[in-house]
Write a protein that binds this DNA or RNA. Structure first.
Lengths: 147, 147
DNA sequence: AGCATATATGAGACGAAGTATCACAGTCGG
DNA sequence: CCGACTGTGATACTTCGTCTCATATATGCT
């Protein structure tokens, strides 16, 4: 039995949202489906020269709101998108290569939930980011050091 | 005995950093000293029309790097500055009025530290933000509802 | 105090990232 | 197949921040 294609899933998602299935949306979704790691909106733009800039931004926003994509903010403030694989996670952001990885901890989640109860006002959500040097970057660093 | 003035403290800080004490820097620092809550770089700009835009940005960066100011990122990605009162804290960001409050938890800090040990690579730092509706906004909301 | 020099300033150009507008095109229910 | 409504894309515009460079100023030295 065949796995559902990316297009089928996009169609289903858009139908569920009451949005129209269009060529540009399919092209953006297909590109994202093939991506690993995180990427900027402009990167998507450049890879899809025949899709308008505004449409790319609109579609990324649409998919983020739908929970398909997840948006992380680099230390310098610039946003990166990545496929959202899980119901809830946090980020490991590499400060040198700017890669964004997902990261989960039940323990952290529970503590954040407890803390949320103590916070005055209504808690809508939270975000935890670790700024790191990833394993790859550390290796390159060491390779460079070893004259 | 008199408390040290803002200017005295700014002078001392700049001397410690090996930076020059200048009029524009004093004017920015004096404005910030009188501020409550968080503010954008542009807001500082507008309140100091006779200080150049570039200088305002440079000074905010200088003070952030020095640990006097702390930079928080709103959900939409735009940065807000606030006076940094503590050695380490996290943020409560109100999604409706965009106020940024500080927030500390020894427990959270300890857990984050433990998690950091388990993370592959070198951990440089972390950031925790709670997105909330603050007490003030909830009150206004209720007042509006009660026709 | 006066001088030399490194540092800081500010006007404005530049750039990146995202949004608004609007005529036109495409989708989809009937 | 048609009509209405949604989506698209070119482009102008906004916002935020950085860069450049001529000018101004703080500071160490004498």
């Amino acid at each position: 039995m065949m796995a559902t294609s990316v297009d089928d899933r996009v169609d289903a998602l858009l139908a569920k949202l009451g949005r129209r299935v269009t060529g540009p949306r399919r092209r953006v979704a297909r590109l994202l489906a093939g991506k690993r790691g995180s990427f900027s909106a402009e990167a998507v733009n450049e890879e899809l020269p025949d899709v308008g800039r505004a449409t790319v931004y609109r579609t990324l926003k649409l998919l983020s709101d739908a929970g398909v994509l997840c948006k992380a903010i680099l230390p310098d403030g610039s946003p990166r998108y990545s496929i959202d694989h899980s119901w809830h996670h946090h980020h490991l952001i590499c400060s040198s290569c700017e890669t964004v990885q997902e990261f989960r901890s039940v323990e952290l989640e529970r503590l954040l939930c407890e803390l949320g109860d103590e916070i005055p006002g209504r808690v809508l959500g939270h975000q935890v980011d670790f700024y790191v040097n990833c394993v790859d970057c550390l290796q390159h660093e060491r390779a460079a050091e070893a004259h």
